[in-house]
Design a protein around this nucleic acid. Sequence first.
DNA 1: GCTTACCGTAAGTGGATGCTTACCATACTG
DNA 2: CAGTATGGTAAGCATCCACTTACGGTAAGC
Lengths: 106, 106
Amino acid sequence: MDAYHTDAWAALGDPTRRAIFERLATRPSAVGELANALPISRPAVSQHLKVLKDAGLVVDRPAGNRRIYRVDPAGVAHLRKELDRFWSSALAAFKVAAEHNEEGDS
Amino acid sequence: MDAYHTDAWAALGDPTRRAIFERLATRPSAVGELANALPISRPAVSQHLKVLKDAGLVVDRPAGNRRIYRVDPAGVAHLRKELDRFWSSALAAFKVAAEHNEEGDS
DNA sequence: GCTTACCGTAAGTGGATGCTTACCATACTG
DNA sequence: CAGTATGGTAAGCATCCACTTACGGTAAGC
């Protein structure tokens, strides 16, 4: 339950997917609705949504004729945690290096 | 001064580059040193470093024979800010949707 | 000055990827 | 039951990307 099929980082690495994700965060939408607001075709949006869904970032729910996509809370929390870990591990030693900024190799 | 050549998100989307970045955050290293610790060749590391450098995430400094790469504070701060903006814009409306979680359409 | 170490770049290659059009399945509408 | 709307998927394609080997160029060691 804590392992996702694909990397959320890589999934959001694509600008188009980031745009889709941000738009979904603003408001859950149907596929055609997203495609209408983006400069790409509807199948392309569908494929992007598949990637996002595979990464656990979005979930879909059938709503009559259409299919509503929305941001997945669990995936967001997971990514949030991963980002926090990344930052902490990155900035921890980084701050130490900043202290040695004056001169340390001599 | 606030525009970077390439996307930091996309740069860190690659797992190998994330590993390099984290390792550099832990401790500044030379190219061969990184290549020795990774399952890829030295030129591959060089190319990854070029991408990271282009994204403003790392800086390099010649040290005698070798070339030391380290994390760039400005790039890290920039990415941090961008991530914060992303999260705030994403989670703002997302929280609203969570309140409607009980049931709203029936 | 010659050899060795370190590194960036050029060239080439296999595989991933983002996009398109075409097609099929499902659900609402008359 | 047709006809329309919505969307997932297959097939094809052009591009990008990560990696390799080969080469050139600078700095240290003898």
